[in-house]
């Protein structure tokens, strides 16, 4: 079975090519590129990725405009049908603004744009996106963001932790995120949002391959399903 995936491009996305490249290299299948103004997704998708960047110039709030774009109505419908959706960086911000994930991403506590490799801990190794990691494994993935400070109220944070929906935590101080959260899963487990960029760590030439297992997890789960 062929892995059918799509990467959404918004005006101001700048990691969409990297995301498509990672998906193509890991899955061996072509990736459909979809424009924000399209109303429909290709039929029969196995996987949708929302890339990093500065959609709509981060006007109003990061991800706010993109979350209300025509294609996001189709992405929300697909996510609610159970189609896996990965949002990285700006894609994570879009997912929270669209209501597919709880919480919000605030300005980094230190006010600085943070662009460097960071250490993460894999908190949940059972999910569709993380099955090929070990629980507690430490990995190195780069971040590049200004608004990555994850915020949710205490009840929501307790619920996320209690339900195993924290996929990744920072293993060092990065941006002031509540409980060091770097990536969260939806209640159904088919939506993952994360600030670090796994698509930038899939082959040795990029300086590391710790992001590759995320894509391998999804491809393996979906192609063998």
């Amino acid at each position: 079975m062929t892995f059918r995936s799509a990467v959404i491009t918004f005006p101001g996305s700048n990691c969409d090519r990297d995301m498509a490249d990672a998906l193509e290299k890991v899955s061996g299948a072509p990736v459909t590129r979809v424009w924000h103004g399209d109303a429909d997704l290709p039929a029969g998708l196995d996987f949708i990725a929302l890339p990093g960047g500065f959609s709509y110039g981060d006007y109003l709030r990061s991800g706010a405009m993109a979350a209300r774009s025509p294609i996001m109505q189709a992405v929300i419908a697909a996510a609610n049908r159970g189609v896996p959706v990965l949002g990285v960086c700006n894609g994570f911000q879009v997912l929270t603004e669209a209501g597919l994930l709880p919480g919000a991403l605030l300005r980094n506590a230190g006010m600085n744009f943070v662009c460097r490799e960071v250490r993460l801990t894999v908190e949940n190794s059972q999910s569709l996106f993380t099955a090929r990691y070990e629980a507690g494994q430490e990995i190195v993935i780069p971040v590049a963001h200004h608004d990555g400070n994850y915020f949710a109220d205490d009840a929501t944070l307790d619920q996320l932790e209690g339900e195993g929906r924290v996929a990744f935590c920072y293993a060092e101080e990065v941006n002031g995120s509540a409980r060091q959260i770097a990536g969260v899963l939806s209640a159904a487990g088919n939506v993952l949002g994360m600030m670090p960029h796994p698509e930038r760590m899939i082959e040795a030439e990029q300086g590391g391959t710790d992001g590759r297992a995320l894509f391998e997890s999804a491809v393996k789960a979906l192609v063998s399903a």
């Binding site: 109003l60 709030r61 706010a64 209300r68 929270t96 603004e97 709880p102 919480g103 919000a104 605030l106 915020f151 949710a152």
Partner: peptide, 8 residues
């Protein structure tokens, strides 16, 4: 729905 994010 748009101008404010009611989470924050």
């Amino acid at each position: 729905k748009l101008l404010a994010n009611m989470v924050i």
